[in-house]
Computed example of a mutant assay.
Amino acid sequence: MGITRITRHPQYYLHDGSVSIHVAGTVFRVHKYFFERESEYFRERFETAGPQGDGQSDQAAFRLEDVKVSEFERLLWVFYNPQYRYDEQPMDHWLTILDLATRWEFPGVRDLAIRQLQKLDMKPVERVVIYDKYDLDRSLLLPAYMLLCKQPSRSVEDGKRLGMPTVLKINEAREYAQRFAAEQGCHSPTSADAEDEELVEILKDVFGLSY
């Protein structure tokens, strides 16, 4: 019977750490405090872990499944980022953190990821798809909805990604905006001709947003 080799993580195996965590053949030694303070999921898992997997030693490392070493590194980076250079990280970095924070119930970390995603430049369709996937506050999507309303058309692929409910609501908002522009005296109006303030109110009503 072969012996599985276990590697200590070169950065996140901390000698003053208090819990060993096994991820895909790599052992991390980190501070249990962060996990117990931030995550209901980990608090419960630690409480129910038996002596063979309680994380007290590398041999009894607490095991995490369905996560890559590179992904877990990104979550740990939130706690061990000495200079707090959050704004320098790309979108995929924050999407990984959002995904793990959602899955493992880190509400504070999830909020941080959302704030950082809000600062990043994204295409409106991409932002809507991501925010819907993680059930984020739809009020945050108001600027993206406005851009979609003002677009003269969208591709079939974008429509599929957005999903029928969102497409129908955007079309409804476009019709209201076009009607408003016509009532204001615009000849051959489009939804892009409606004033931004009115378009905001239309979208809030159509999507049921509080903003």
Rank of each mutant, 00 (worst) to 15 (best):
G108C: 08
M91D: 04
E73D: 14
W77D: 14
K123S: 15
D92A: 02
R74V: 06
I114T: 13
M146K: 14
A101H: 09
D111G: 12
R115M: 12
E157L: 08
L141Y: 09
L100F: 01
M91F: 04
M164L: 14
D137W: 02
L136Q: 15
R154L: 14
D111V: 11
A113S: 10
K150N: 12
Y145F: 15
A113E: 07
P82D: 02
L142A: 05
V109A: 03
L148N: 02
V109S: 06
L140C: 04
T96K: 10
P124E: 10
W94S: 01
S153P: 07
W94Y: 03
K123G: 15
T102S: 12
D158N: 12
G163R: 03
E157K: 12
L112N: 06
R161A: 15
L100M: 15
P82T: 01
V167E: 14
S139T: 15
A101E: 11
L168V: 13
D99H: 15
K123V: 12
D132M: 13
L140K: 10
R115D: 13
K123T: 14
D111L: 07
D135I: 11
W104E: 01
E71K: 02
F79I: 05
D92K: 02
R127Y: 06
Y80H: 01
R110S: 05
V156R: 13
A113T: 03
L147V: 15
D99I: 07
I97H: 00
W94V: 08
E71G: 06
R161G: 03
P165R: 05
M122R: 08
D158Y: 03
S139C: 14
W94R: 00
K150H: 14
P143E: 01
G159P: 07
Y86N: 14
D87C: 09
Y84L: 08
R161P: 04
Q116F: 09
L168S: 07
R127W: 11
T166C: 12
P90K: 04
P90W: 05
